[in-house]
Write a protein that binds this DNA or RNA. Structure first.
Lengths: 189, 189
DNA sequence: CATCGCATGTAATAGGTTACATGATTAT
DNA sequence: ATAATCATGTAACCTATTACATGCGATG
């Protein structure tokens, strides 16, 4: 249900073809917000056009169709953006991994936390590089890059991940020094 | 592909039936890491059992089957946890909303950011309440609540959201006071 | 024995991934 | 002409959501 609004929003910012949108999902800052292959994008564009939320603005070479949002489309986007997000988004593999840490041996948990820290650093680098690219590209056309705020958001989330993982490492070490379940460690297993 | 490891991990911590796992996904701290209805849980448990990663430890009243992980299951979980997470998780409705902010009128963007701040506050309250519950419940059985670290992680992510939204509001106001695209506002539309 | 909650399932539909296919244009 | 890239699509499959169904066991 979100893909259609992703498309609607990108087209509201700037008209384009399915091919253009595919590239924006792959290459631009959009990839830090949502992902979709062209095989999902084209059918969704067709549906949006059928419902009158977008329309073909122009035909290009090959079979290229450049879409733009209609008034109704803009209204639909606005309505969706204003609708209160009520369910906490909870299908995140990184969070799941962190959730399951307690199911592992402490030594593994340490190792995995250190991996998470490295991962956060690496992804931070990626986003910052992408942001730099986007800033440079957009300084030519005068307006700030689409998704700049979202990229900053991504950075902050990753920084929070890094800080949390560092903190969690400390927690695990504390728990090993002063285990509260000494009395229950009889069987050994 | 992640659901199976969510189940494996929960069973590694403590054996249980599909019904138990359903409740853990709904009620406990698990709901801040992954979500699944029973209609997905039962078939996945069947598949895991067929592959020998879990097995029936005990049969209860009604048709209740209590599963536990096998050695192979534990190894599979370990391997998955240790595998480097390589793709940045990017299908998040909140992030998408933030990404699309630029497609809206500034006044709407303000309103939506304020909503996000309120949302973050509300969800922070929910997680903290759930964490308190879990702490109280687990103080009886001696070990820290499963998912405590993850709940803390969720809190930090929400705090980052709140801080970011506050910062973004400031950015939008700055952009309105000193718009860099004055020279291009000739056509009006 | 009626009802409530436990415990599991099926079926229909929607959303998403991967592999494969194809024609049109530009570049060499 | 041939290759590369643009531009779009189909088909098979997997994952997830929603609605509906059912039978067993405890409780009053």
């Amino acid at each position: 249900m979100s893909l259609r609004f992703a498309l609607l929003g990108m087209l509201a910012y700037e008209p384009g073809s399915g091919y253009d949108l595919t590239k924006r999902f792959q290459g631009g800052l959009g990839r830090f917000a949502w992902q979709a292959p062209h095989t999902r994008i084209y059918p969704e564009l067709a549906k949006l056009a059928e419902e009158g939320l977008i329309e073909v603005a122009e035909h290009g070479p090959r079979r290229r169709s450049i879409y733009r949002v209609t008034e109704r489309g803009r209204a639909a986007l606005q309505a969706w953006m204003e609708a209160p997000p009520d369910a906490l988004e909870v299908r995140s593999e990184p969070v799941l991994r962190m959730f399951l840490l307690s199911a592992l041996e402490p030594a593994s948990a340490h190792e995995i936390l250190r991996q998470q820290i490295a991962y956060a650093e690496r992804k931070l680098g990626e986003i910052r590089a992408a942001l730099d690219d986007a800033m440079r590209a957009s300084s030519e056309d005068g307006r700030p890059p689409f998704g700049r705020l979202a990229a900053e958001f991504g950075c902050r989330q990753l920084e929070a991940l890094r800080e949390w993982a560092t903190w969690a490492l400390g927690q695990l070490e504390d728990a090993e020094i002063t285990p509260q379940d000494c009395e229950t460690v009889a069987s050994g297993d």
